[in-house]
Nucleic acid binder design. Structure first.
Length: 461
RNA sequence: GCCCUCAUCGUCUAGAGGCCUAGGACGCCACCCUUUCAAGGUGGAGAUCAGGGGUUCGAAUCCCCUUGGGGGCACCA
């Protein structure tokens, strides 16, 4: 464990508009690794301002998923709907509304922002005109320089104003943790942008910055999709009079075909992988190696081992395609490392689920599962595969395709004859130990008597 | 349309000017082990380091261009 370094503070700030996404889990993991490697603080914050799309179920899914992955945080809500823990509470944006309002008032007072009375129709018309002229979309600045009288007149008309942040001309740059120097001309930002809606609710770009500033976040490590938004954030930090944190933009996880990861092409919900029987160790191991590598030839590493080796300098710049084969292989590697009692516990829910939906007729005991381990443990790609592998043991009636019973060198008739003869030969041994040593001699005798090959008969059996 | 950005086997990657006739892993193929299937072991196919120009005695590694990919440009997050 490194000595604690209070100056390092990172965060993961998902919004509960959907279940825990693989990309969010990966970003959370890298922030966690970064923090733990240097003894910094890892913060969990809920960006729940999108009231229309937020649900408690999603909140629970996100928190449960991170708990499952053993990604732990030092500050923030630890349970869905639960209390916030930490010196900068609350850690849910819905409970921080007054702070955003205060920050907006401050910017307004300094004329770093101004009220904008443009209607959605006006803005839409501007956008269309720009599109027709093959111009990049941007705010035209209609309300940027309204006189006090003009503003008062609009207010008198009953128009509600959104708050727009003034984008200053010039170049904004920063030294990114993974992609080095990036510089963007603010002329390409799309003009002054809205930070508070006309109805008074704050927008994302504003809330992240207000919160990151308030919570003294030192390093913002997030997905590459935010690179182009970073200048807006830097401008906001400056306007708020707060030191700008260090930024690091992680490459995105892509669909197998190289396009942006989508639900349609890739299973994106972490809970779905969990439900399939991916183990926490394997899933995490896979995620850690997507876009990062220890620079050695190691590939099966535990969370703690990855924490030890993690170095953000070794994070890849290009996006990484999701490769399910590799995930399954790693998962199998970890399943083989699980202690028997632990494995029985982990297998149980999958067997119960199979009984629940009728794939099997009864649930085996722990003893039975435990006894099967030597046979199944090293051939399970996922925990759920237990049912495919040996589910036939737990059904009332086994239906088998006769075709698969016929050994290569035999035909159906011979197989039927062989199986029948074997049953008779073994009938005498009913009630004895039924051990291999005891069963093999009579079967070999039978084979010899009929002129068969032992392999064929054994194969059929 | 504009801006940003990336580019090594099919995939994840090693590689920070000579250690590279480019290494490992997944996947694929073969063999060994095994009286099934896996796992494991061994070996193999697989990348003229996207293409083209430079710089250098020497470039996958540095620079430029081209091409291709990704991201962003909301009163979404």
């Amino acid at each position: 464990m490194p000595a604690p370094d209070p100056s390092i503070r990172v965060r993961i700030a998902p919004s509960p508009t959907g279940p825990l996404h693989i990309g969010t889990a990966r970003t959370a993991l890298f922030n966690y690794l970064f923090a733990r490697h240097v003894g910094g603080t890892f913060i969990f914050r809920l960006e729940d301002t999108d009231v229309a799309r937020n649900t408690v179920e999603n909140e629970r899914d996100i928190i449960d998923g991170l708990h499952w992955l053993r990604i732990t945080w030092d500050e923030g809500p630890d349970a869905a709907g639960g209390d916030d823990i930490g010196p900068y509470a609350p850690y849910r944006q819905l409970r921080r509304l007054e702070r955003y309002a205060a920050a907006a008032r401050h910017l307004l007072a300094e004329d770093a922002a101004y009220p904008c009375f443009c209607t959605p129709e006006e803005l839409e018309a501007d956008r269309k005109a720009q599109e027709a002229a093959k111009q990049p979309p941007r705010y035209v600045g209609r309300c940027a320089n309204l006189s006090p009288d003009e503003r008062a007149a609009r207010v008198a008309e009953g128009r509600r104003a959104a708050t727009r942040f003034r984008v200053r001309p010039g170049v904004v740059g920063w030294t990114d943790l993974v992609r080095d120097r990036i510089e963007i001309d603010t002329a390409n930002l799309g003009g002054d942008f809205v930070i508070v809606r006309a109805d008074g609710t704050p927008l994302y770009h504003f809330t992240v910055v207000v919160d990151d500033a308030a919570m003294e976040i030192s390093h913002v490590i997030r997905g590459e999709d935010h690179v182009s938004n970073t200048p807006k954030h830097i401008l906001l930090f400056e306007a708020l009079g707060h030191a700008v944190p260090v930024f690091g933009h992680l490459p995105l996880i892509l669909n197998p075909d190289g396009t942006k990861m989508s639900k349609r092409k890739t299973q994106t919900a972490v809970s779905d992988y969990r439900a399939e029987g991916f183990v926490q160790e394997g899933f995490l191991n896979y995620l850690a190696f997507l876009g990062w590598s220890p620079g050695t030839e190691e590939d099966v590493l535990s969370l703690d081992e990855v924490v030890e080796r993690f170095d953000i300098d070794k994070v890849q710049k290009g996006g990484a395609r999701f490769d399910r084969d590799r995930l399954e292989w790693l998962n199998g590697q970890w399943i083989r490392r699980i202690e028997p009692d632990d494995l029985v516990d982990r297998l149980r829910p999958f067997v119960e689920a199979a009984a629940g939906d009728g794939r099997i007729d009864w649930v085996p005991s722990d003893e039975e599962l435990r006894a099967l381990l030597p046979v199944v443990q090293e051939r399970l790609p996922t925990l759920g595969a237990i049912v495919d592998l040996v589910g036939f043991l737990w059904v009332d009636e086994v239906t088998v395709d006769p075709a698969i019973l016929v050994p290569k060198r035999w035909d159906a008739a011979t197989t039927r004859e062989g199986l029948g003869a074997a049953r008779e030969a073994l009938a005498a041994h009913d009630g004895v130990t039924w051990e291999a040593d005891e069963l093999e001699p009579p079967l070999r005798e039978l084979v010899e008597a009929r002129g068969w090959k032992a392999g064929d008969l054994f194969m059929a059996i």
